[in-house]
Amino acid sequence: MQHPYVSFEGVTRAYPGHVVFRDLWFGVNRGEFVCLVGHSGCGKTTVLNILAGLDAPNAGGVIVDGQEISGPSLDRAVIFQGHALMPWMTAEQNVAFALSCRHPGWGKAKLRDAARAALEKVGLGQAADRKPAMLSGGMKQRVGIARALAIEPKMLLMDEPFSALDALTRGALQDEVARLVAEANQTAFMITHDVDEAILLADRILLMTNGPDARCAEVVMNTLPKPRNRATLHKLPGYHALRDHILEFLLTRSRTLAGTRPADWDPKSPPDVRPADAPLPAAAE
């Protein structure tokens, strides 16, 4: 197996008297979409912040592209939970600001054209001159996506990017992200607690137990064929088994597995499961 693009190696994050998670190992391959699923308080956002370089582990390290990370990088763009747009800039200026960081030598006109192009890609060409206060929640998050993709990062990090949106908007944006990520063969890592979102987008889904002292209990391989879309997703064979498996984990096992570590537990390779493959032989009977 090739070296993964990202690899978490024994990462521990703790505050005085409180271990968020301990000895976390996982990798993300190039072009792969990995989702991290777990309840609030299990340190999901901390995992993402460490990968983004905004937070640092107490022990262990994160290797990206063969090098241990020491801080934030333009190669790992973040789509934040709150859109995190600067309210004094128009949508276009927000994207242009990111572009000006990536390309310090670019002139105003070039930045503007590139920002417009990035906004067109997420269907916001006509709203480029509006400030965030004049945009709906979904449009703001689209600008956030455009800003992250405009700098052509090697990896996209998303921290529950759609959790603040209504269901309809969320669905539209999930499809949009699925399309954009597939088009660019973008490596992506996403935090979510929305099971369907994870099944729609992810190649692999990491399941985390409840905190404190959370761990990655298992890795669910999403073997449903790609490209997927929301309209037909639930008709795919194996979808319900996959969904039930993750739901069951979130409802009960995330709690019962918390804290206890089985004797044969190897943090370096949490068990892989393929629930979507299971019903096939059953269906053949």
């Binding site: 801080g71 934030p72 990088s73 333009l74 790992r76 995190a84 600067m86 600001f97 000006s100 960081c101």
Partner: peptide
């Protein structure tokens, strides 16, 4: 969150001061 945006964009101290902090605090 705005400072985090600037950090993930590797905006640098001066650019962060003039493009993010100054307009935010203005």
């Amino acid at each position: 969150e705005w400072l985090n945006v600037a950090r993930t964009l590797e905006a640098g101290t001066l650019r962060t001061a003039f493009r993010v902090i100054l307009p935010a605090a203005a």
